[in-house]
Design a protein around this nucleic acid. Structure first.
Lengths: 353, 353
DNA sequence: CCGGGCTATGATAGCGGTTTCATAATGGCC
DNA sequence: GGCCATTATGAAACCGCTATCATAGCCCGG
C-alpha cells in the first residue's frame, strides 16, 4: 500500500502536471496535446507552439504507463542472460541496448544465473511487465516459457546459438569448438583435454564439448575422461581444473581447450607455477577473446566472438518484428579461431609419433 | 449505428485474458480478482481458489501498464552508468538488480558513455517512463537533471562517490587515491606518475588525481606534468600511456598509480616489453581489483572496491525510500589498498635519497 | 455567394487494472 | 432467535493517455 496519499487539492505544485493541465493552459484539448507530442496528425502551428510552451512551463512529462496502456505497447524489451557479469554477454547487451535506444525502446535486464528454472521465472516476470520483445541466451529453455512466449506472441530472439527451432542470432558452437580441435589435431596433438563451466542447463557448453568430441572421433580419437573437467567459472576455477588434470596418473594432455578465456588464463597461471611450458608442453585455446587474451604471455589462442554484433543484429531483428516487418530467422555471426602464441605442435614423443 | 456492439467473447484465443475474463469464469467481480492477486483484503477461501483456478486455466497475466497506472507505481528503477561494459559497474549492477528483484522491482539499464549530456538524456528517458527510483554514478550531473529529479521527487542514489549534496553509497575517491600515494611515499618514492581515463565529466577520476596531488603536496612534492596522463580506457591505452611517459626526456617516475587495473595491466605489459622491471624500476598501483589483478606477474597492488556491496546497499536505500521509510543519506563502502607484488621501494639513486 | 470536400479540433470512449463505498453475508453474544 | 459488529463482495469511479468520430472552420470552384 502506497504511503498515505494526503488529500491534496490540485495546487498543481504537489501533483504532476498531466496532459489536461497542459491542454488547459494552452487553451486546447488533450487530444491536441497528444497529437503534438506524437505527431499523429497535423496541428496548426500556433496551437502546437502554445502546447509546447505550456508543457515546457509546467514541466510536463507524459505518463509512460498510461501511454503504454492506451497504445498497448510498452516500448521496452527484456533480456534474460545467464550471467550479467560475463564480459561476452555484456558486450552483446551493450550494443543491444544502444540499438534499441535509438528506436526509443528501453532495455529491462535480468539475470538467470545459469539455471533454467530461474530463467523461466525471470522471463515470466518480464513478460508480466508487458515487454514487447525478449532476448534469451541459448536454445535450451523450460517448455513452460516457450509456451508462454508463443501464447503471448512475444517476439523473441535467441543469441549465442543457432537453432532451427526459433529465431537466432549467434554462431554454431559445435562447429566453432570443432574448428579449434581440428586445428590442434592438425598441429599433431592427440591427447586433447577440455575444461568448461557448468554444462547443465547450458546448451552452448554442451555443443562445444560435442564439437570437440566429434572432431576427435573423425580421427578415431576420444577425450580421456580424466582430461575432461567441468568446473565453475573464473580464473581460480581454471587453475584448479589444470591441477586436477595433472594430478591424474595418466599421461597429461598435450593441449587443452577451455570454455572461456578466464579458464584459459587460470590454466596458464597454474602451468607457469608448475613449470609446464606453454605452448611447449601444453597448447591452450580459450573462448571469447577477452580484452586481455592478446596480452597474456604467451598470447592466448582463442575463438573470437563478435559479441557486439550479436547484440546489434538481435536488436534489429526484434525491432523489425515488433514493427510487424518480416525478418530472417537465422543470422550467423562469425566465430573465428584467432591463432596466437599459446598453441604449437606437441613435443615429439613416443606415443605422439 | 448502435454504440459499440459488445465484442461478444471474441474467440478468447486471439486476445489476452484480462481480469474480467477471470472474474466471469470464476463467477466473481474484478475487484475480487484484484484482491486475490494483491492480497489487499481478505477473500473467502473458495472464491480465492476459484479465481486462481480460472486464472491458471486462462493463463491470465495482469497487465503491468494498467497496474502501474492505477497504482501510480511502476515497480521499476532505472540505472544510468557511464559504461555498461566496465567490470566494476557491472558487479555493482548485478547485485543491485538482484536485490531489487527480490522486492519485485525490475531494473532498466542505460548507458551514458562518460558524457553528462548523454546522461541527462538517458535519465530523462527513464524518468518519462515512470521509474520509481534512479541510480546514478558520481556526483557530477547536469543541473537540468537534478532539477527534474527534485521536481518529480524520484528517490535517487549516487554511487562510487561520497557527497554531502545527495544520498550516496560509495567511497571517498580522494582519500582512497591519497592512501595509495601515501603508501608509495612511505616506500620512498618521490617521482610518482598518474594515468587515468577521461577526466572530463568524471568527478571520480578528478577526485583521485586530486587525492594524489594532495598527498604529494603534504610532502612538498608535485606531479611532473609529463607523468600525468589522461587517456581512454583499456589495456592498450595503458601501454600507450607508459610509452608516452617514458618517451619524455625527464627522469621517469619510479611509481605510477593507474585509474583502473586495465590501465595497470597495460603499463605492466609495456614495461615488460621494454625491460623495465616491476616493481624494481617501477612500482605500480591499479584501481578496482579486477578478477585477474591478483594473477598477474607480479600481482598487481590495487585498491579494492566492494562493488557488489555498493549495489546491494544502493538497492536497499532506494527500496527504503520508495516505501517511504527513512534512510541514512550516506553509506561509505570500504576501499582498501591491497598490497601485492607490483610495489616496492624505489632503487636507491642520487635524487631519491 | 454558396455548397462540397478538406482539415484541424474537441468530446468521449476505451485501455485494464485498483480502490473507494455501499451493501450483502456472516458471526458472536446475550 | 434477534441484533449489532464484522467481514466479504460488487458497482462504479478513477488513473492519464490515445484513438475514433462527429463537427466546426476553411478554401475554392462554379
Amino acid at each position: 500500500m502506497p504511503p498515505s496519499p494526503p488529500p491534496e487539492e490540485g495546487s498543481l505544485e504537489d501533483r504532476f502536471p498531466v496532459a489536461r493541465d497542459v491542454a488547459r493552459l494552452a487553451g486546447v484539448s488533450t487530444s491536441t496535446v497528444s497529437r503534438v507530442f506524437n505527431g499523429t496528425a497535423a496541428v496548426r502551428a500556433d496551437k502546437r507552439d502554445a502546447v509546447l510552451k505550456a508543457a515546457e512551463e509546467l514541466g510536463f512529462v507524459a505518463n509512460g504507463a498510461a501511454r503504454a496502456l492506451s497504445m498497448r505497447r510498452f516500448m521496452a524489451v527484456g533480456a534474460v542472460v545467464p550471467n550479467i557479469e560475463n564480459e561476452g554477454f555484456l558486450r552483446t547487451l551493450s550494443s543491444f541496448q544502444e540499438r534499441l535506444r535509438r528506436d526509443g525502446y528501453t532495455l529491462i535486464l535480468t539475470n538467470a544465473g545459469y539455471d533454467l528454472d530461474n530463467e523461466w521465472q525471470e522471463a515470466s516476470f518480464l513478460l508480466e511487465r508487458g515487454i514487447d520483445g525478449l532476448l534469451l541466451v541459448g536454445d535450451l529453455h523450460r517448455p513452460a516459457l516457450l509456451e508462454r512466449i508463443a501464447r503471448q506472441r512475444i517476439p523473441t530472439v535467441q543469441t549465442f546459438t543457432l537453432s532451427a527451432a526459433r529465431p537466432c542470432v549467434g554462431f554454431d558452437n559445435l562447429a566453432a569448438a570443432g574448428r579449434a580441435a581440428q586445428y590442434l589435431l592438425d598441429l599433431g596433438h592427440r591427447r586433447i583435454g577440455v575444461i568448461t563451466g557448468i554444462r547443465k542447463d547450458n546448451d552452448r557448453s554442451g555443443a562445444r564439448v560435442a564439437g570437440i568430441v566429434h572432431a576427435l572421433a573423425a580421427r578415431g580419437l576420444t577425450i580421456n575422461p580424466a582430461h575432461d573437467v567441468e568446473t565453475s567459472h573464473g580464473i581460480a576455477a581454471g587453475r584448479d581444473a589444470l591441477r586436477q588434470i595433472l594430478s591424474q596418473s595418466t599421461p597429461p594432455p598435450t593441449a587443452i581447450i577451455c570454455g572461456t578465456d578466464q579458464l584459459g588464463f587460470g590454466v596458464m597461471i597454474e602451468a607457469q607455477s608448475r613449470g609446464v611450458a606453454i605452448p611447449g608442453d601444453l597448447s591452450l585455446i580459450g573462448f571469447n577473446d577477452a580484452d586481455y587474451a592478446a596480452f597474456l604471455t604467451p598470447a592466448l589462442t582463442t575463438i573470437r566472438i563478435h559479441a557486439a554484433e550479436i547484440g546489434q543484429v538481435a536488436a534489429e531483428h526484434l525491432l523489425a518484428r515488433m514493427a510487424g516487418r518480416s525478418v530472417v530467422r537465422l543470422t550467423e555471426i562469425a566465430a573465428e579461431l584467432i591463432v596466437r602464441g599459446s598453441t604449437a605442435p606437441p613435443r615429439p614423443s613416443m606415443d605422439n609419433a
